[in-house]
Design a protein around this nucleic acid. Sequence first.
RNA 1: GGCGGGGUAGCUCAGCUGGUUAGAGCAGUGGAAUCAUAAUCCACGUGUCGGGGGUUCGAGUCCCUCUCCCGCUACCA
Length: 532
Amino acid sequence: MSGSRPRYYLTTPIYYVNDVPHIGHAYTTLACDALARFMRLDGHDVRFLTGTDEHGQKVANSARAAGMDPQAFTDRVSQNFRDLTDAWNFSNDDFIRTTEARHIRSCQAIWRKLVAAGEIYLGSYAGWYAVRDEAFYGENELQDGPDGKKIAPSGAEVEWVEEPSYFFKLSAWQDRLLAFYQANPDFILPESRRNEVISFVKGGLRDLSVSRTTFKWGVPVPDDPDHIMYVWLDALTNYITAVGYPETERESFKRYWPADLHMVGKDILRFHAVYWPAFLMGAGIDPPHRVYAHGWWTNEGEKISKSLGNVIDPLELAAKYGLDQVRYFLLREVPFGNDGDFSHRAMVGRMTNDLANDFGNLAQRSLSMIAKNCGGRLPGPGAPSDADRALLDAAGDLLARLRGEYRVQAFNRALEATWEVIGAANRYIDEQAPWTLRKTDPARMGAVLYTVAEVVRRLAILSQPVMPGSMGRMLDQLGVPDDARDFAALAVPLAPGTTLPQPQGVFPRYVEPEAGADRGPAGPAPGRSTSH
RNA sequence: GGCGGGGUAGCUCAGCUGGUUAGAGCAGUGGAAUCAUAAUCCACGUGUCGGGGGUUCGAGUCCCUCUCCCGCUACCA
């Protein structure tokens, strides 16, 4: 049954557990969730993966600081991300953790493949290392200290160290990667990011250190227990682990790989667009179809950072404005791919204008008239007039339009297109003036109200990917059964005569808290300490 | 420094391969309507399209130059 449906496999990055979930995590997963829901409603066999990245020295250190063993520690912090998944109504089909047995097995398998292919060799990694920062620095980042020592930007003293390390022969992949980008122009989106990646690769590639010996919290390198696999090879491999690697003959692997989309933040584009396809091709595995690098959010125009103390908590955000309102805002406010600014003013503007006034009120005004003037039963359409047909056609054409936009992750444009139809429906009501028809031509009034209800039905079905909860409630009020809410059901109009429940507003306006009771992530900052 | 992308109405931005009076949303002003969450609908912009020069019958849209902003320029994830 699922065999005949087109498949769609998409992933979020796995989130590093040494951090609590913030708006950036929520945003990435939200974009995937909307896309996953759209594809499911459109008849695709969707596989939507998210998860947590749990290895690395920082995690080991944090665990030690918390007096826990690393596994117990990651068990706990990984849960924060699962909680976000529930709180934001994300519909992922799987949640992978890099500490799971399936993943460790998968990493070691791809490692062996790369070794067998001659893509990995043992060398030594040398560089300026700051013990205090537990990090390497480039020569150009260093400054001369007082006694001839080199000093890192952080002020820490660095020393020249060498450690044995396995390397991936990335340097050999320059031409093949460039050819791959050329042959697959949509592999990296947005286009500006693609240019950056190509420019980077054209500048030449160096071999990549892919193992470490200085700490132990990672996937052991096969046949060399002194080494663990280093971050990116470990982390990126999750995308194939989750569909069954190394069992490449397994149904799930054959069905879902190569992935249709890796959604990532712009900060980790290179790893996904350069290293990952090279790793995969080196191991004889097809690279994914697309990597999309989205932008970042600022808070009230300010860069978000822990030190500024203006980190936005996704749970607080949803509690303050409503989950679907926030989901809508994030996907509507900026052209997807660009950076965006989260401001209270803009959020409330979208809530009020787009959701409460345009869409919510459209449903409410039409459903109220049906409740009051049609005995709470859906009237019949009658013979459609030109105006009826024009509006129904606009709503009917919307699916094709949205497919085009979702296909390229243009969520904002998809929503703009949806709101064009909402605007047309509001104009239609004003022009048809059913409140006048009530006295002069009740049958025509019924036809008008039916037409609006049918258009609202289509709008609600098509808006489910972004606002699943609210649209579910709107469809409830239209008497649409649960099994008639996918895109195939768009072609089956509302049944006249259906008894409808009492209408209730779906999108309340934002009410400012009483003065003095103000709180929340986007509120004015309390006095900031000036101590330094 | 190198490569790339930008500077268009108060704000956020559309404007593809050059061609009718440069557009949208928000904000603002006026009006209509009153079904609806005081929501909706209609009307209203004298914008040096960053500055200057050039190509062209014609440039926001091409070329040169100046200026300002942003991104990338590898092993913290």
